[in-house]
Design a protein around this nucleic acid. Structure first.
Length: 885
RNA sequence: GGGCGAUUAGCUCAGUUGGUUCAGAGCACCUGCCUUACAAGCAGGGGGUCGACGGUUCGAAUCCGCCAUCGCCCACCA
C-alpha cells in the first residue's frame, strides 16, 4: 500500500481478504490439544436468502468465534442448512405449478427428484451470502439436515424412541394446515385475535318423529358451516334454564337431522346462550365431549378445507365460502336469530398463514414428559445458561406443560417415517426396508417385501434439527447408545455458545437440549444468547409486504461489511428487539473511515532515530498504555457477559476519543517550514504497537479493515493473519496515571471552553497559570493540547483573566483586556451557590447520627472527602471573587 | 384468561449486591471552525423531577405494593 486514499474503499478490500482467508483455510478447525470453542450455526432454511435477522445473528456468531480464535482457542463454527420440509416443499410445488406440473400428478419419487433438483439449483444461496458478511465458518464442515448421513441419524432416532416406547401412533385432533395439506405441531400454530361474527341459530325441538315443533333453543357459533357435523347440543347440568330440554332432541337446521340434547360441565352458563353445539370432528373440545358422551364423529371437511359429501349441502365449497352461503340459507329458512360482531382467537399456520382446521387424523407422537424433565434440569442446574436470564421463566413454563410432540407431517420432502405396515395393519419400525421385512417375517413368516407398505408421512423438520449439535460431528451417535463418540464429537461437544432468536426457544433450543441429554448425557451448549427481532426504526417487524426490509447485500455493497456489522451491533443489546436504522450503518462506515485516516496519519510519520522523545510524547505514550490496559479489561468483561454492543462501544470510544482525539493529537508532529517534523523512534514504535493492539481489539467486530491495515502495519509473511494474532492481554492499569491524565484533559477542556466563550482561535497561544500542587508530569501535554504556556505559581497576582477550577485544582488564563468582571462574578457566584448547596447536603448526611452509625465506613469516608473537596472549592471560588471585586 | 418483561435525554440504550461528584453513553440537536489524518471531520454547548402514587430505609433510578402504558409468551370459552 503506497498511497492511501483519503476515503476507505471497503468493496476493494473485502473480497481480497476473504479469498485470502479461504485460500489459507484459516476458518478450518481440526481437533487438537487446544481448548475447543464451538458454535453450530442455527441452520437457515435451505430456501432462505439473507435478511437482516440473519445479519444480526451471524454477525454475533462471527464476533464470538473470532474473539475466541484470538484468545487462543481452537475455534470451530459449523455452517449448514435446514431442509425445512414445509417451506421447501411449498416452494417446489409453486415452481412446478409455474411449469404446469401438479404435485398430485407426480409420484413421490418424481416429486423428490424435482425437489432435489431445486435444492441443487437454488438451495443454500444464503451460505454464499454469509461470506460477504465476513463469516468465518468452517466451510469444509458444511452440513445439510437432509444429507444421507444426517437423515440416517434421524431415522435411527425414530427407531430408538419407538423401541423405547416413547413414540406412538394415535388418532388425535391435530392442527391441520389446509394449504400445506399437513398436520402441524401445536407450536406451529399462531393464535391471532380475529374479527368475526357470532351467529345465533335456532334449533327447533323435534316432536320425536323428526318433525319440528314450534319450540326451539338458540345456540351461538362462529362456525355455522359445521352444523351439518353436529352430534349434539350440550348444556350445563346446573343450568336451570335448560332443564326442560332434558331428554329432548333437536333438529339441525337445513338438513333436519335429529340430535340429542346432552349435559356437560364444560359448557359455560354465562357465555353465549348457554347452549353449545357439539361438533366432534371439527373442534378439539367438542371431540373430547364426544368421547365422554359417545357421540358420532362426522367429518364433513376435506383436507383442502372444503365441505365433503357428508355435509349433504354446499358440497365442494370452501369452508369460508360455505360460511357466507349457509348464513344466507339459514336466514331464509328462519333459523338465524341474530348476528353479533365478535373477536376471537383463531389459529393460523405459522408457515402458510392458513386458518388451521382442527382435524382428526392418525399421527405419530413423541412422548415429552421424561425428555422435558431432563431438559428442565439442564437449565435449572445452570449447565446451560440463558442470556438474558428472563427466558428461563418462559422455558420452564413450557417444559412443565409440554404436550406430546406430533412429529409426522403429510409431506414428501423430509425423512420418511421408518414404519412399515403389514397387510393386517400391524406395524414394524426398523431403520430400513430389509430390517423391516425381517421383523415382519418374525410375525408372519410368509410375508414378502411387496406386502409391506411404508408409512407415507415424513418427520417434522425439528425432529432432524434437534440433533444438529451432535449429528454435524458424528451422525452415527443419535439412537445408538453403545456407540462411542468419534473424535470430532468427543472434542467439539458440548458446543460453547448458541446464538438464536427467542421465537424458536421451544421448537429448537429446548429440543436440542432434550436430544443432547438423551444421546450424549449432557447439555449441547453452555450458553444460549437470545437476540431480539429486527424491526424497522418505528418498531414494525420487517416484512416483504411492508417493504421495510432492506437487502443486506446492497447495504454491504454500499457501506462495506464492516460498517453493516457495526450498524447491527450498535443497537443490539441482548434480548431486546433491534430497531434497525440505516443511520447506524452510516455510523459504522464513518468509524471505518476514522480508523482509515488515523492510519494514514500514523503511516505518514517520518522517524528520526536520534531525536530524543519530547516530554509531551513521553507523557502521552505513558498514559495511553494504561488507558489501553484499562479498556481491554472492560472489553473482556463485556464479552464474558455477552454484552457485545457495550464491548463495541467501549472499543469505539477508546479508538475515537482516547486514541485519535487525545493520543494522536499529543504525539502528532509539529509543522516546521511547511513540513511535518520527524517523530522520535520511541514514540513511533509505541504508536505502531498501540495501533496494532487497537486493530486486534477491533478485529472481531470489523474483520476486513483490520486485516487490511494489520497487513500493512509491519512486514508480514505470506500466510500470516490478524485472525490468529493474540488478543491484547489483560493487565492491571495504573490508576494514578489515569487520574493524573484525566485531570490534564479536564484542564485542556476548561481552557478550550474559555477559548470558545471568548472567541479565541485555537492557534492563538495563551498563558495558563496553575497553582503549585498540580500534577507536574502532565503539564507538557496540557500545554500542547490547549496551546497555552503553563506557569506554575503559588499566587496568581494582579493579572486580568479568567479563573478555572478543575476538581480541586485552580487555574487562571491570562487574558488582558478581554474580561468582563461582572460576567465573571455572576458565573462564580452561581458556581459558589451550587457548591454551598452541595456542601450543605453532604453535611446534613454526616450530621445524621443514623447515617454515621449504619453506613459502611467506605461510604462515610467518601462523604468526608466530598465535604473536604467542597470546602476547598468554596475557598477557591471565594478568593477568586475577592480578587475580581 | 394466566405468566413474563419493560418504562431513564428527541432516538436507541447502560446504570452489575441500595451509598464514589450518579443521573451516564452513542446518535440527533445548537454554536463556532474547510486548523496540511479524517467536513464520514474538529472544538465547544444545551437537554432528563429515572412512567404515576404510596411504602421500606440514615439514604431509592436501584427494594416492596398498587396503578397506567407498551411488548412478548402460554391458553379451548363455543
Amino acid at each position: 500500500m503506497k498511497e492511501l486514499a483519503a476515503k476507505y474503499n471497503a468493496a476493494e478490500v473485502e473480497d481480497k481478504w476473504y479469498a485470502y482467508w479461504l485460500d489459507h483455510k484459516f476458518f478450518h478447525s481440526e481437533p487438537n490439544e487446544k481448548e475447543p470453542y464451538t458454535i453450530v450455526i442455527p441452520p437457515p432454511n435451505v430456501t432462505d436468502i439473507l435478511h437482516m435477522g440473519h445479519v444480526l445473528n451471524n454477525t454475533l456468531n462471527d464476533v464470538l468465534i473470532r474473539n475466541a480464535r484470538m484468545h487462543g482457542k481452537n475455534a470451530c463454527w459449523v455452517p449448514g442448512t435446514d431442509h425445512a420440509s414445509i417451506a421447501t416443499e411449498s416452494k417446489v410445488v409453486a415452481r412446478l405449478k409455474e411449469q404446469g406440473i401438479r404435485k398430485e400428478d407426480l409420484t413421490r419419487e418424481e416429486f423428490l427428484t424435482h425437489a432435489w433438483q431445486w435444492k441443487e439449483e437454488h438451495g443454500g444461496i444464503i451460505l454464499k451470502q454469509l461470506r460477504k458478511l465476513g463469516c468465518s465458518c468452517d466451510w469444509d464442515r458444511t452440513r445439510f439436515t437432509m444429507e444421507p448421513a444426517l437423515s440416517e441419524a434421524v431415522i435411527n432416532t425414530f427407531v430408538y424412541f419407538y423401541k423405547k416406547g416413547w413414540i406412538y401412533k394415535g388418532v388425535r385432533m391435530v392442527n391441520w394446515d389446509p394449504e400445506a395439506l399437513t398436520a402441524v405441531s401445536d407450536d406451529e400454530v399462531i393464535h391471532k385475535d380475529t374479527q368475526s361474527h357470532f351467529y345465533h341459530l335456532r334449533y327447533y325441538i323435534s316432536d320425536g318423529k323428526g318433525n319440528p315443533t314450534d319450540a326451539y333453543l338458540v345456540i351461538a357459533t362462529t362456525r355455522p358451516e359445521t352444523i351439518m357435523a353436529d352430534a349434539a347440543i350440550c348444556v350445563n347440568p346446573a343450568d336451570e334454564r335448560h332443564h326442560h330440554l332434558r331428554g329432548k332432541k333437536v333438529l339441525i337446521p337445513l338438513i333436519n337431522r335429529e340430535i340429542p340434547v346432552i349435559e356437560d360441565d364444560y359448557v359455560e352458563m354465562d357465555f353465549g346462550t348457554g347452549c353449545l353445539k357439539v361438533t366432534p370432528a371439527h373442534d378439539v373440545h367438542d371431540y373430547e365431549i364426544g368421547l365422554r358422551h359417545n357421540l358420532e364423529v362426522l367429518d364433513i371437511i376435506d383436507e383442502h378445507g372444503r365441505l365433503n359429501e357428508k355435509a349433504q349441502i354446499l358440497v365442494g365449497e370452501d369452508r369460508f365460502v360455505a360460511r357466507k352461503k349457509i348464513v344466507k340459507m339459514l336466514e331464509e329458512a328462519g333459523n338465524l336469530e341474530k348476528v353479533e360482531q365478535y373477536t376471537s382467537p383463531v389459529g393460523y399456520s405459522e408457515r402458510t398463514n392458513a386458518v388451521i382446521e382442527p382435524r382428526l387424523s392418525a399421527q405419530w407422537f413423541l412422548k415429552m414428559s421424561e425428555l422435558a424433565q431432563m431438559a428442565m434440569e439442564t437449565v435449572d442446574s445452570g449447565r446451560t445458561r440463558f442470556i438474558p436470564e428472563k427466558y428461563v421463566n418462559t422455558y420452564r413454563h413450557w417444559m412443565e406443560n409440554a404436550r406430546d410432540w406430533c412429529i409426522s407431517r403429510q409431506l414428501w420432502w423430509g425423512q420418511r417415517i421408518p414404519a412399515w405396515y403389514l397387510p393386517d395393519g400391524r406395524v414394524v419400525v426398523e431403520p430400513n426396508a430389509e430390517a423391516a421385512l425381517k421383523a415382519a417375517q418374525a410375525i408372519c413368516p410368509d410375508i414378502k417385501a411387496e406386502d409391506l407398505h411404508q408409512d407415507e408421512d415424513v418427520l417434522d423438520t425439528w425432529f432432524s434439527s434437534w440433533l444438529w449439535p451432535i449429528s454435524v460431528f458424528d451422525p452415527d451417535m443419535p439412537g445408538h447408545p453403545d456407540h462411542q463418540p468419534n473424535k470430532d464429537l468427543a472434542y467439539y461437544y458440548p458446543t460453547s455458545d448458541l446464538v438464536t432468536g427467542p421465537d424458536i426457544i421451544f421448537f429448537w433450543v429446548a429440543r436440542m437440549i432434550m436430544a443432547g441429554e438423551e444421546f450424549m448425557g449432557r447439555e449441547p451448549f453452555s450458553n444460549v444468547y437470545f437476540t431480539g427481532i429486527v424491526r424497522d426504526k418505528i418498531g414494525r417487524k420487517m416484512s416483504k409486504t411492508l417493504g421495510n426490509s432492506p437487502d443486506p447485500l446492497k447495504l454491504i455493497e454500499q457501506y462495506g461489511a464492516d460498517a453493516v456489522r457495526i450498524g447491527m451491533l450498535l443497537c443490539s443489546s441482548a434480548g431486546n428487539d433491534i430497531f434497525y436504522d440505516e443511520a447506524q450503518i452510516q455510523q459504522g462506515a464513518a468509524f471505518c473511515n476514522k480508523i482509515w485516516n488515523a492510519y494514514r496519519l500514523v503511516k505518514g510519520f517520518s522517524v528520526d532515530e536520534k531525536a530524543p522523545q519530547s516530554p509531551v510524547s513521553a507523557a502521552a505514550v505513558r498514559w495511553f498504555g494504561e488507558k489501553l490496559k484499562e479498556t481491554v479489561a472492560i472489553v473482556e468483561d463485556c464479552y464474558g457477559k455477552f454484552r457485545i454492543s457495550e464491548a463495541l462501544m467501549t472499543i469505539y470510544r477508546l479508538f475515537w476519543d482516547d486514541f485519535c482525539s487525545w493520543y494522536l493529537e499529543a504525539v502528532k508532529p509539529a509543522f516546521v517550514d511547511g513540513k511535518a517534523a520527524p517523530t522520535d523512534a520511541a514514540t513511533h514504535a509505541a504508536t505502531l504497537s498501540y495501533f496494532e493492539a487497537l486493530l486486534k481489539l477491533i478485529h472481531p467486530v470489523m474483520p476486513f479493515i483490520t486485516e487490511e491495515l494489520w497487513q500493512d502495519l509491519s512486514p508480514r509473511a505470506e500466510g500470516e493473519t490478524i485472525m490468529y494474532a493474540a488478543a491484547p492481554s489483560v493487565e492491571k492499569a495504573d490508576e494514578a496515571v489515569l487520574t493524573d491524565f484525566a485531570i490534564a484533559f479536564e484542564t485542556v477542556n476548561a481552557v478550550r471552553g474559555v477559548r470558545a466563550q471568548k472567541n479565541i482561535a485555537p492557534k492563538e497561544p495563551l498563558t495558563l497559570l496553575l497553582k503549585s500542587g498540580y500534577p507536574e508530569g502532565v503539564i507538557p501535554l496540557v500545554e500542547k493540547l490547549s496551546n497555552a504556556a503553563v506557569r506554575l505559581v503559588s499566587e496568581f497576582g494582579q493579572g486580568q483573566g479568567i479563573s478555572l477550577l478543575v476538581r480541586t485544582y485552580e487555574g487562571f488564563v491570562l487574558l488582558e483586556g478581554l474580561v468582563n468582571a461582572d460576567e465573571e462574578i455572576a458565573k462564580l457566584e452561581k458556581d459558589l451557590a451550587y457548591q454551598q448547596n452541595f456542601l450543605a447536603g453532604v453535611r446534613k448526611k454526616l450530621s445524621n447520627e443514623r447515617f454515621v452509625a449504619n453506613a459502611p465506613a467506605a461510604v462515610i469516608d467518601n462523604e468526608r472527602k466530598k465535604e473536604a473537596d467542597a470546602l476547598s472549592r468554596i475557598e477557591i471560588i471565594e478568593s477568586q471573587l475577592k480578587a475580581l471585586k
